[in-house]
Amino acid sequence: MTEETLPAAKDRSLSGWQLSKLHTFEVAARHESFAKAADELSLTPSAVSHSINQIEAQLGIQLFLRSHRKVELTSEGQRVFWALRASLQTLSQEILDIKNQALSGPLTLYSRPSIAQCWIVPALADFAQRFPAIKLSVLTGNEYINFHRTGIDLAIYFDATPSPQLHNQYLMDESITPVCSPAYARQFNLAGQPEHLSRCMLLHDQQAWSYDSGTDEWHSWAQHFGLNLDTSAGLGFDRADLAMTAAIHHAGVAMGRRRLVQKKLDSGELIAPFGGMELKCDQHYYISTLSDRHWPKIEAFTLWLKALAADDARFRGAAPG
């Protein structure tokens, strides 16, 4: 079908029949292939081609250029495709917003692995009891995710500078102090003697707040307390809880984040051999969401996290931030 043979469209508004055929057009335009569109729609390629011919005739617009081996969108077809995709995305978002106006349904959290393992997951029984209709999924990773592409509803990050593109809420502060097993502390006579660290294996979370934070935690702590300590050596990990596990098994001294190691300190699996030598981090934990997602279940989970952080701080005798 050529542009000269297309009849002029009679009406400005789309009919229900035309709207139904636009679905076929959207699939064919996305693949730029009638054969692939046929596979997705469970039709034959000839049926897809026939539907496209019909919608072109109805609209009075040539949507595709056809050759023996391929089809491609015309400039008009590209405009229709972009408008259709934008409309479908808007409609999908509206439907999603409607569905999420209740305290029920799926909710996906993204978190740094260590804060999920050591702090969030142990408390989830309480959240499930309070909000049994919310189906929570927890995903972990060290990267900063794209909310639009991943299906994630909210994230917990640990950094000093939240993204200005997101809606961010402060969750809690953090502080660091060296931790090790009681046996390791006895072996190297560490109690109250940080100068003995020079003989120890240092354990590093090399992605504490970014992919290249390296040995910065140990360096910052040593510099703050005026210790001449070579922090460039030791064992490296990409998660704080792995460094903590290595410390429990006598591999060395880890730089412990207080929020993450407190339960291990309480149980006696780890000790903090240098007493009050604790450094408040410039970084803090914060909750990030898309600015337009004012969903009750996101708000409920956010308030639960903040209450958990406040209770955690009160338990330790510290004021919440």
Rank of each mutant, 00 (worst) to 15 (best):
L171Y: 04
S49F: 09
F158G: 07
P194G: 01
L14Q: 01
E195K: 14
I61S: 02
S198L: 03
S92R: 12
P182S: 13
K135Q: 11
Q62E: 15
Q165K: 08
Q206T: 10
F131A: 10
Q283K: 02
L88F: 00
M201S: 09
I95K: 00
A160T: 05
R257H: 12
D11S: 07
E278I: 07
G214P: 04
G141Q: 03
S13F: 04
I152K: 09
P113E: 14
W17F: 05
T161R: 15
S92W: 01
H204V: 11
D312C: 02
L22S: 03
K21D: 03
Y170G: 10
V48A: 12
E195F: 07
A307E: 15
R314C: 04
C200L: 12
G317M: 07
D292L: 03
T177K: 01
A222P: 05
H250C: 10
P45A: 07
F64P: 14
A319Q: 13
T2R: 11
Q193D: 08
R66H: 15
T231S: 10
T302C: 02
L136C: 09
D205I: 10
H31K: 08
R258N: 06
W17K: 10
G151N: 06
A243T: 06
I176Q: 09
R12I: 14
Y285S: 06
S137M: 13
N189R: 10
A133V: 08
H294M: 04
N168T: 02
N100Y: 12
E72W: 04
G256P: 07
A309Y: 13
L73I: 06
I248K: 11
H204A: 08
A123K: 11
A57N: 10
S291L: 02
H68E: 11
H224P: 04
A307M: 15
T231D: 15
D212C: 03
W218A: 00
I95Q: 01
A37Q: 08
S104Q: 12
Q207Y: 03
Q78I: 03
P194Y: 15
E32G: 07
Y144H: 14
R259A: 06
L136M: 05
F237E: 01
A318P: 01
G77V: 08
R259D: 08
W119Q: 06
L154H: 02
F81Y: 10
G151I: 03
F158D: 03
